[in-house]
Amino acid sequence: MVRIIVLVKDIVDLAELKIDPSTRSPKIEVVKRKMSDVDKRALEASIKLKEDYGGEVITLSMGGEKTKTAMLEALAMGADEAHIVNDDFTGVDTRGTSKILAAAIEKIGDFDLILCGEMTLDSLSAQVGPRLAELLDLPQVTYARHLELKDGRLRAERDLEDVDEVVEVDLPVVVSVVREINEPRIPSLMNIMKAKRKPTVELDAGALGLSIDEVRETSSIEILKVEAPLVERKRILIEAENVEEAAEKLAEAIIAEGVMEE
């Protein structure tokens, strides 16, 4: 039996993200949100562990009303319970986020594993897993692409730059997974229906003994500006009778650019 808390974030759908051409800032409000892809794989890994060894999967996320859609999907995939810290997190940095999550994890309590993605694809900060390990005084296994339990220990394959590692560690432990760990399942219609009856716990920072205003005011990192870099590309589509002719014209263009010489 293994009790897993998996961190899931709903983010803007990056494939749909458009840039406002006049300000070059991303149009966040108009884009629909979805579960961050790597987080979904951490969730899938959690559900697989539950299927193999028995136990319970609890999702934990921070967000607002919109987060509930992603959590319903998580429950439909096979999570047993969803916890959402629902508050105004504007201006809260990763340090603050990690403290809120650590408090929520302690409140849920009695866990064997904390799973998360190596990074959320929106902010790309990749800090939450290691920060939680530090705050909760737990060992951390990062970049996992395979997980199994053996005699009450976790065995993980890790993917580093120069080596592949297999590590073992006693529970409880914080684990961050890479995208390659699995392909997440698509929930059946029946499981989507069932998900609506599964418990969702909503709480605010206050319920965790934290003042969200204080967390915000003491934020270490302030985001001053976000904008898309100017991409100056020629965007010339080569027109031709057939693809062979197009390739020849392309060769001429490449040579004319002078990029072949040092």
């Binding site: 694809l121 929106d122 270490s220 990192i221 985001i223």
Partner: peptide, 17 residues
């Protein structure tokens, strides 16, 4: 300066602690 939103944007950030 660091990449954000999947690498589509650059964020200018300030550390104040």
């Amino acid at each position: 300066e660091r990449l954000t939103y999947g690498g589509s944007c650059i964020a200018k950030e300030m550390s104040r602690k």
